[in-house]
Measured scan of single mutants.
Amino acid sequence: KVTYHVPNEEFARKLYKKAVDANLNVEIRVENGQFIIHIE
């Protein structure tokens, strides 16, 4: 399980798409202006 803290929405979207394309379980949320992405 990996967690990324991404300040940039564009990068967060790319990361999310890559994980989904790889059939990984992804959860994304915004906290204090940062995008928190959990990948399992």
Rank of each mutant, 00 (worst) to 15 (best):
A22I: 14
N23F: 15
E40A: 09
P7I: 14
N8D: 12
V30G: 02
P7Y: 15
H38W: 12
V2M: 09
E27Q: 09
L24M: 06
L15F: 05
A22P: 01
A12F: 12
Q34C: 15
F11D: 14
H38P: 00
Y4W: 10
I37T: 00
L15C: 15
E9L: 10
H5A: 09
E40V: 12
A19Y: 12
L15P: 01
F11C: 15
E9H: 04
L24T: 01
K14Y: 13
K18G: 06
A19K: 01
K17F: 09
P7H: 13
N32C: 14
V26I: 05
I37M: 02
Y4E: 05
K17V: 07
V26T: 01
G33Q: 02
K17G: 04
V30W: 12
E27D: 05
P7R: 12
E31I: 11
H38A: 13
I37L: 06
E31F: 06
V6P: 13
A19F: 15
K1H: 12
F35I: 10
F35C: 04
E40M: 13
E27C: 12
K1A: 09
K17E: 13
N32M: 05
E9K: 04
Y16T: 04
Y16L: 09
T3H: 12
E40C: 12
L15I: 11
N25R: 12
Q34A: 09
I37W: 01
T3E: 10
N23D: 04
H38D: 13
V2Y: 10
F11I: 14
N23W: 15
V26L: 02
K18L: 14
E40F: 14
N23H: 14
R13S: 03
K14H: 09
K17W: 09
R29A: 04
T3S: 10
E9G: 03
A22R: 05
T3I: 13
F11E: 15
N25T: 12
V20W: 06
K18A: 14
N23Y: 14
K1I: 07
I28C: 15
D21F: 10
V26D: 00
N32G: 06
V6K: 05
Y4G: 06
F11A: 14
Y16A: 12
K1W: 15
I39M: 03
I28E: 00
D21H: 07
N8H: 04
L15G: 01
V20Q: 10
I39N: 00
I36V: 09
N32I: 08
L24R: 02
V20K: 10
N32Q: 04
E27G: 03
H38S: 15
I28T: 00
V2Q: 08
L15D: 06
E40K: 08
E27R: 07
E40H: 09
P7F: 15
I37E: 00
F11K: 07
Y4I: 15
R29N: 04
I36F: 08
R29M: 06
N25E: 08
L15N: 03
D21L: 11
V6N: 03
V2G: 09
K1R: 11
E40Q: 11
R13F: 09
K18E: 13
Y4R: 11
E27S: 13
E9V: 04
N32A: 05
I36G: 01
N25K: 13
I36A: 02
R13W: 11
I36D: 01
K18Y: 13
I28Q: 00
L24W: 08
V6Q: 03
F11P: 01
